[in-house]
Computed example of a mutant assay.
Amino acid sequence: MSVTQIKTAKVSVVQDFKEITKMRLALSVVFSSVAGYLLGVEVVSWSTLLLLAVGGYFMVGASNAFNQIIERDLDKLMDRTKNRPIPSGRMSVNTAFAIATLFTIAGISVLYTINPKTAMFGAISIFIYVSLYTPLKTKTPLSVFVGAIPGAIPFMLGWVAATNDFGIEPGTLFMVQFFWQFPHFWAIGWFLYDDYKKGGFFMLPTGKRDQGTAVQVTLYTVWTVVTSLIPVFGVTGDLYLTPVSGIVILILGLILLRAAIRLYKKRDAKTAKQLMLMSVLYITLLQIIYVADKFIRIWI
């Protein structure tokens, strides 16, 4: 084997590892967990922050690997997934299972060293994603509701890691990211509708790209914005947001809502993709604003 072939093989292995664990998605989850930690902690422990990031990556990577093992035959049918490591034949099911198992054990162990509650929520996340959400995707649109639970855990997981406590504060963080999942994933389900249909996945609430789905996207966008602003009113314990930051988030929320209303009016794939991108921008900026607001108040 030539040097070029060896290098190509190494690149392929790294690429397959990134795909089986969905690295970009995992890193976004780690970002949410870190934001939650910074919101909950009084004095930042960099070692705990590192453990949270590593443990969080392991947990998401495990969920995604198990998911791709279960859906390997369906992935062959869809354009966006047919080149994944397992359906393309580049990775065996046994290898993927070994990665998923190793990541599960490592993830729970790492999170347990932070505190048992963090490990427990991490384990619950994997269980719901793999055992409930994944099989329900081909049976009912309610799968999105089930999938929103593990999807909303990372933001609150960071707070639990910081405080070893679950109360109104992490509950609020969970609620914000829970409601956010719906416009986000329904937008994805809309512009990838034809591809999902090939795999037999039911992602939209009515099963169609129709007015009913568009109405629900808009309603859940409203709920996302409303729950995002609850900390402004001082009713969420130690989780507080100043009115100035609240106004910024409201403006972002109105921009997100405008994108949802545009989807209601146009009902096309291009508008749905714009809503999806705006939803990613919204949750990212929201988490940054929440954290910045806290530390600016401390410094002032």
Rank of each mutant, 00 (worst) to 15 (best):
F66D: 02
Q68E: 09
Q68C: 11
I69S: 10
I69T: 09
I70W: 12
I70A: 14
R72D: 02
D73V: 02
L74D: 07
D75Y: 00
D75S: 07
D75N: 07
K76R: 14
L77C: 01
M78D: 01
M78C: 10
D79A: 13
R80M: 04
T81W: 02
K82W: 03
K82L: 10
K82R: 15
P85L: 07
P85F: 04
P85K: 01
I86E: 00
I86H: 05
I86C: 04
P87W: 10
P87G: 08
R90L: 07
M91Y: 00
V93L: 14
T95F: 09
A96G: 09
F97S: 12
F97H: 01
F97Y: 12
F97Q: 12
A98S: 14
A100F: 12
A100R: 07
I105N: 06
I105G: 07
I108F: 12
S109K: 01
S109M: 12
Y112W: 14
Y112G: 00
Y112P: 02
Y112K: 03
T113I: 12
I114Q: 03
I114V: 15
I114L: 08
P116Y: 14
P116K: 02
P116A: 08
M120V: 15
M120C: 11
F121Q: 00
F121I: 07
F121E: 04
I124T: 07
I124D: 06
S125A: 15
F127E: 01
F127W: 12
I128V: 15
Y129W: 09
Y129F: 12
S131T: 11
T134S: 12
T134K: 03
P135A: 08
T138Y: 03
T138D: 00
K139Y: 11
K139R: 14
T140E: 04
P141S: 09
P141R: 07
S143H: 03
V146Q: 07
A148K: 08
A148Y: 08
A148V: 01
A148G: 15
A148D: 08
P150A: 09
G151S: 07
G151D: 07
A152W: 09
I153D: 06
M156K: 00
L157C: 04
L157I: 13
G158P: 08
G158C: 09
G158R: 10
W159K: 02
W159Q: 03
A162P: 02
A162V: 08
T163P: 00
T163M: 11
T163C: 02
D165F: 14
D165T: 11
G167S: 13
G167H: 04
I168S: 08
I168K: 04
I168C: 04
I168L: 15
E169I: 05
E169G: 13
P170S: 12
P170C: 10
P170L: 08
G171T: 10
T172E: 05
L173K: 02
L173D: 04
L173S: 03
L173V: 12
F174A: 02
V176S: 00
V176D: 00
Q177G: 01
W180G: 02
W180V: 13
Q181N: 05
F182V: 01
F182P: 02
P183Q: 02
P183V: 04
H184W: 08
F185A: 06
W186P: 01
W186C: 01
W186N: 03
